[in-house]
Design a protein around this nucleic acid. Structure first.
Length: 471
RNA sequence: GGCCCCUUAGUCUAGUGGUUAGGACGUCGGCCUCUCACGUCGAAGACAUGGGUUCAAGUCCCGUAGGGGUCACCA
């Protein structure tokens, strides 16, 4: 078989969303696994909704995920241009050829006439199909018109879908659809076919919301006399309520996840596992995937997007980062929250303790802001642990720390253990009040780490304040 | 509503006629422990449903129900 030539063909009408990213990923993997070509094409024929900002956002999202394209915008290629609005002549030429061969024709029906027909059909509770009014009218370019593709009345078109298997569409469910608008801009099905043919795409992988377009497109390939590519339709991604994933389900853009502190490899890892699996393995790098991915392992059932599992996957990836890289990547998130973090030993220590405790950089900032900002004292914690009873403990620990020549773990441990023994208490009775004084709450990393991160001066300041409150 | 597709635990999935139906997230519990988390051990939890075919069905066939998609001069 020829080397795969696949494409991702988004409309620049918004950010790169989770579903689009997975479609791009599956295609990219299919190309990379066998040295094929991954093409990016921008389907910007909907001028009302297409924007340059959206284009840029899509490029940014793909690059962030590590999905580089071999042909397309900004990189060029032998089959460009890669923007549909720059290929209008091509569509027109193909349409004219179909007209001259009697496979397409001009339709002069107005939108109003068509709408009236649709209304009537609805009132009579029957399906509306274009009645073929203009099928045999002569081609008159001087009249406003669209171009319609002639669909056979009988029979059916079928194909072997790489993920869904055999699918057949009866022709009587189709109609002579518009391929060129009155302004000569192509509609989706025609533009995609002409582009896929001229870009020599041999596998079309896309969301299964396009299943119903496939027979129409196959008919067009045949009418044009071109080879029909292989199709692969990926199951949809749904929200928790099992409807198509959309904004109301929460964040759906890949950059939103980037901004929440997800790693690109984690997003890739989670998305690929939504609809694809490889035995019991859960964690895959992009390199692993290039080796393991196969369209035949893509499932057929729509999957519910599960943010909890994605956070778990992210945590797995975060845990694997070397200390320096973890700190370097975490830094912008602390900064964005207005916290005065630096790429220094303190931040590395914060990240070292955060590593096992937080799943995203967003959670790092949320959980450990007290290392860089004044504590937010939890009233319940204060009521329980900053009391007249615990005040002597706080004072003793405060004095002990003040007297320590260094904040190494061993002397700190000796101090806490010594206080516990002296008072006949468990270590918890000593540590909890101190924890509340230093962090504002009852859950935190180990006390010795907290003290070391805060440093002696800040530790003593917070202890003093705790003692004052425990009065 | 017509057409197309789908149906293993709350969720993602393994499973290709013979398994105690496996793994993961989440949930619950034990251990570890200065709290939390990590780790670790364990538990609960699924073949939508009714008929066939077969010695044997989650696996094959048909029906039913449920879900999704799609029916534009959007993509």
């Amino acid at each position: 078989m020829d080397k795969p030539r696949v494409r991702f063909a988004p409309s620049p009408t918004g950010y790169l969303h989770i579903g689009g990213a997975r479609t791009a990923l599956f295609n990219w993997l299919w190309a990379r696994r066998s040295g094929g070509t991954f093409i990016l094409r921008i389907e910007d024929t909907d001028r009302g909704r297409s924007t340059k900002e959206a284009e840029a956002a899509i490029f940014e999202g793909l690059r962030w995920l590590g999905l580089d394209w071999d042909e397309g915008p900004e990189v060029g290629g032998p089959h460009g241009p890669y923007f549909q609005m720059e290929r209008l002549d091509l569509y027109e030429a193909h349409a004219e050829r179909l007209i001259s061969e009697g496979k397409a024709y001009a339709c002069y029906c107005t939108r109003e006439e068509l709408d009236a027909g649709r209304k009537k059909a609805e009132a009579e509770k029957r399906q509306f199909r274009y009645p073929g009014t203009c099928r045999d009218k002569p081609y008159d370019r001087s009249r406003p018109h669209v171009i319609r593709f002639r669909v056979p009345e009988q029979g059916a078109t079928s194909w072997e879908d790489l993920v869904k298997g055999h699918i057949a569409t009866p022709h009587d469910t189709l109609q002579d659809e518009v391929i060129l608008r009155s302004d000569r801009v192509p509609l989706y099905n025609f533009g995609a076919v002409v582009d896929d043919v001229t870009m020599k795409v041999n596998l079309v992988g896309r969301g299964d919301d396009h299943v119903n377009n496939t027979a129409r497109q196959i008919l067009m390939y045949r009418a044009l006399g071109y080879p029909v590519p292989t199709f692969a339709h990926f199951p949809m991604i749904l929200g928790a309520d099992k409807t198509r994933l959309s904004k109301r389900h929460g964040a759906t853009s890949v950059t939103a996840y980037r901004d929440m502190g997800y790693l690109p490899q984690a997003v890739v890892n989670y998305l690929v596992r939504l609809g694809w699996s490889h035995g019991d393995q859960e964690i895959f790098s992009l390199d692993d995937l290039v080796k393991a991915f196969d369209m035949k392992d893509v499932g057929q059932t729509a999957g519910v997007f599960n943010p909890d599992k994605m956070a778990w996957v992210n945590h797995e990836w975060l845990k694997q980062l070397p200390d320096e890289e973890l700190a370097r990547r975490a830094l912008p998130f602390f900064r964005a929250a207005g916290l005065p973090a630096e790429d220094d030993a303190k931040l590395r220590h914060v990240c070292a303790v955060a590593r096992e405790r937080a799943r995203t950089f967003g959670e790092y900032v949320e959980q450990f802001r007290y290392f860089y900002a004044p504590i937010r004292l939890d009233p319940k914690a204060k009521g329980k642990f900053l009391t007249a009873d615990t005040r002597p403990i706080l004072e003793a620990i405060r004095a002990g720390i003040a007297a320590l020549p260094s904040l190494d773990t061993a002397p700190l441990e000796a101090l806490f253990q010594g206080e516990a023994q002296k008072r006949g208490l468990g270590l918890g009775k000593i540590a909890q009040p101190v924890r509340v004084a230093l962090t504002g709450g009852t859950a935190s990393p180990g006390m010795y780490d907290v003290i070391q991160i805060l440093g002696k001066d800040e530790t003593l300041r917070r202890m003093d304040e705790g003692i004052r409150l425990a009065a």
